[in-house]
């Protein structure tokens, strides 16, 4: 499945590159760097969820890649103006803007290497092989998630930490494994592994660097960790699964567009 998907993507990108011969677009290669959010690495990553849980993460790893840059426009919710975002804070309104039909678009650049990202480490790490494509403007990025051995233990995303609220402390761990249990009726495994529509108004250029940062702070939006304490902790941690609300929140939120940031620097 993975090889087929990669081959298809390469074919699309190859077509795009071919178009470059007649439209003037230049074939380019660029560096790719990945990391967690920018922050003081000397401090633990701690934040408060929408449910009031104070969460400190001790592990947050993502098997990221391949990645594609696409000409399709992002969903509107991801390109609201600063003024609109200010209004969201004050109006009794939903942030639920945009819509669910995201068409296919056209891929203009690709990063075919899979890399493990430590989302707690702000320092950017170079991805071997970089990326390539044509120098056409992209509007969105598309990240594919595949399970990975090693530190990820066969998962695509792995996380551990402690959640605290009102005197309750819940050490937890868990993972996102891309498999058939994620497939919604009407969807597919490929649909389940893709995070599409990540805002990325970038134009690939030779000598530049594509930078991808993973932000784990939204991974537990909506999660109520109290449910985990009904189970049994192993080695001091409660393990969430897709059968509890923490796991359901995680497998949705770890695949949210907002968990990824994509920029392009014309210089390395």
């Amino acid at each position: 499945m993975k090889r087929r998907a990669l081959a298809l993507a390469l074919l699309v990108a190859g077509s795009a590159a071919g178009c470059g011969d007649t439209t003037g677009s230049e074939r380019v290669s660029f560096a790719v760097e990945v990391g967690g959010i920018e922050r003081d690495a000397a401090q633990p990553l701690a934040f408060t969820s929408d449910q009031g849980w104070e969460i400190t993460l001790s592990e947050a790893r993502v098997a990221l890649g391949p990645l594609y840059l696409n000409t399709i426009a992002p969903l509107e919710s991801d390109r609201r103006s600063p003024l609109q975002r200010l209004g969201d804070l004050l109006l009794p309104s939903a942030h639920a803007l945009g819509e669910s039909h995201l068409s296919s678009g056209r891929i203009v650049a690709q990063v075919t290497t899979q890399v493990e990202v430590d989302a707690l480490a702000p320092a950017l790490v170079a991805v071997p092989g970089g990326g390539d494509g044509v120098s056409e403007p992209a509007l969105t990025g598309e990240v594919w998630l595949f399970n990975r051995d090693g530190a990820l233990g066969g998962a695509a995303v792995r996380v551990a930490g402690v959640a605290r609220r009102e005197g309750v402390e819940v050490p937890f761990e868990g993972s996102l494994v891309i498999d058939q249990t994620l497939v919604t009726t009407g969807g597919s495994l490929d649909t389940a592994r893709k995070v599409r529509g990540i805002p990325a108004q970038v134009t690939p250029a030779g000598g530049g660097a594509l930078r991808v940062r993973v932000d784990p702070r939204g991974w537990f939006e909506g999660a109520d960790f109290r449910e985990l304490t009904a189970g049994t902790a192993r080695e001091g941690r409660y393990r969430f699964t897709s059968q509890d609300n923490v796991g359901r929140a995680f497998i949705n939120r770890a695949r949210a567009r907002a968990a990824f940031g994509i920029t392009f620097s014309p210089t390395r």
């Binding site: 942030h95 669910s100 039909h101």
Partner: peptide
């Protein structure tokens, strides 16, 4: 436990948001 799939959307706070977001499309 029934649950709803967010499909990559991160800004849906509750079921009310989910329903109207989906309906808008």
């Amino acid at each position: 436990a029934l649950s709803l799939d967010l499909g990559g959307n991160s800004s849906l706070r509750d079921v009310r948001d989910f329903v109207t977001f989906s309906a808008r499309a």
